[in-house]
Every structure is written in C-alpha cells, then in structure tokens.
Simulated assay, not measured.
Amino acid sequence: MGYAFPWPTSQGEWLAWSSAVVTLLMGLLLFLAPGLAFRILRLQVKPEKAAAIAEGRGRMAGFYLGVSLCCLLLGPQLFLYMALGFSWLFTAFGRLLSMMSDGANTPFNWASIVVELALAALPLAFAFGFVL
C-alpha cells in the first residue's frame, strides 16, 4: 500500500490547508529559532530563566507542529481542520480576554487577533461546509 501526499482539490480545502501551512511555519520558527520567534512575538526571556526557551520549543512549537502536520499529512479530515480552527479561535479569545482584563490593548495585539481570527476562519469555514 503506497502513501500519497493529500493535495487539496477544492477551494475550501485550499483555504483550510493554507491555515495549516501557516501554523506549521510558525511552529518551525518556534522550534528552530525560539529567540527570534520570541522577539517577533514581543516576549523576553530572563537570563536566569533560560528554561523559558524550552516552553517555546516544547509547549508552543509542539502544539503548532503536531496539529498542523496532522492536518497536512492525513488529508482533508473535517475533524482535524475543526481542531485547528477551534485552537486558533480560542487563541484569539484568550488574547481578547487579556486585552480587556490585563491592559494589553496594543496595536500589536489588535493585529495579532485579526491574524488569529483569519487562521481560525479558514479551516472552520471548510469544516462546517461554508466553503466547499
């Protein structure tokens, strides 16, 4: 039995696939260059807390890589894309809560929430049949 890379065939699949690719690229950046990724995300690691880099590589990159690779390698399975979309949706919701309660109402956070909502909408639109 051979394995073929499941290439997207419809517009909806392409949109969901694109969200998975962006998530994969973000995961690779966090995994391979966490210092650069932290600077982009405006996070700073204290020298006495070098284990924070492990959080970026492990917890953050591991999640991004795991979910996105499942979406990309296992084909257009709606539940996988639903998991990707809801993960990005809750990321945006968490950022919104932080903006409202933690005083993190900055232009960077507004731009980030727009990107996160777009990355959530693409796979969810495909998973729920809004785009075929």
Rank of each mutant, 00 (worst) to 15 (best):
L80G: 00
A52D: 08
L43E: 10
G2E: 13
A127E: 00
L80A: 07
L80P: 03
V114A: 14
A16F: 08
F128E: 10
A104E: 15
S19A: 15
Y64I: 00
P6H: 05
S19W: 01
T23G: 06
P34C: 03
Q77F: 06
W14E: 01
G2Q: 11
G129R: 02
W110I: 10
F86D: 02
F130W: 15
D102Q: 15
F108G: 05
V115A: 05
G85D: 03
L36M: 10
L72F: 06
V45T: 09
G129S: 04
Y64K: 01
A61T: 05
A4K: 12
L41N: 11
F130L: 13
I53Q: 06
S112Y: 07
L28P: 11
L30I: 04
L72Y: 13
W88F: 15
P107K: 12
A20M: 09
K46Q: 14
K49T: 09
E13D: 10
L80M: 11
G27F: 00
V115M: 05
G58H: 02
A33F: 10
T106N: 01
A51H: 13
G58R: 03
F128H: 10
A111E: 08
G58I: 07
L84G: 04
A120M: 02
L84W: 04
E116T: 00
F126N: 00
W17C: 01
M100S: 06
A104G: 12
A4Y: 08
A118S: 09
V21R: 09
L74W: 14
F126M: 05
A37H: 06
K46A: 12
P6L: 02
G2R: 13
M26R: 09
L72V: 08
L89N: 04
Q44L: 08
A4H: 14
K49F: 13
G35I: 06
A37E: 03
M99G: 00
A120G: 02
